[in-house]
Design a protein around this nucleic acid. Structure first.
Lengths: 114, 114
DNA sequence: TTGGAATATTCGATCCTTCGCATATAGTAT
DNA sequence: ATACTATATGCGAAGGATCGAATATTCCAA
């Protein structure tokens, strides 16, 4: 396989390699949301969300639709959702080891007993 | 979903977000290979391969088995292969746009007509 | 136990990413 | 035109990733 294809894949993984961008994709799984909706649901700086959306746009993982004042985003291809679904399975399967990899877990997570 | 889980996923995507590491995972799809095998097949510096393997190990995407002098690597969970298989489908589906995203393509790639 | 082969680690230079802040653009309404 | 809301972009600082060169470790063989 040519290196250019690997770079293409690596770029897409790179685009997914940030917690905020994963959150965005997951929020968009149920349908489109405006940039403002995402900002509100994620509770982050407006510029920050917009920058992350720019990353996702630049790799064409999301598409946007302008409606008046607002810009609505949605995931371009459900394959990306499938990838995230696989990651969820992967996480469940390796929960114990995953816990070891994480620095901290918050309250909503299954307790480890330690 | 707690942020820690998103960080976990993001870390795994980050581990996959490099052409050399994608190449390693793909080479390992057919079975285990030694670090030296990978080095030879990829034609890269020994230290470089070893560093990339360290990244994959640290996220537990690969496991290793020592046999005398050598260390044999394999993909820990076939889910990761499924993820890469999905990415192949994604690439095929969006080949035209993907071409636009790539800076350059090498000879072995399907010609674009331009 | 000395040497050689296979692999891993450390170091430092360079580049890439991320963030907040400030500013710019675009659309809508008055 | 002016003002207001929604979104995007430019900038610079701080931290993270990547590479080659050098060095360390581990295992086996003589």
């Amino acid at each position: 396989m040519p290196d250019s294809l690997r770079r293409f894949k690596a770029d897409i993984f790179q685009a997914l390699a940030h917690p905020t961008r994963i959150a965005i994709i997951e929020l968009l799984e149920d349908g489109e949301l405006s940039a403002g909706d995402l900002m509100e649901k994620l509770g982050m700086e407006q510029a920050n969300i917009s920058q992350h959306l720019a990353v996702l746009r630049s790799k064409q993982l999301v598409v946007n639709r302008k409606a008046g004042n607002q810009v609505f985003y949605s995931v371009r291809d459900p394959i990306i959702n499938k990838v995230l679904a696989l990651m969820r399975r992967y996480f469940q399967k390796h929960l114990k080891e995953a816990l070891g990899l994480l620095d901290e877990m918050d309250d909503s997570t299954i307790p480890t007993g330690r």
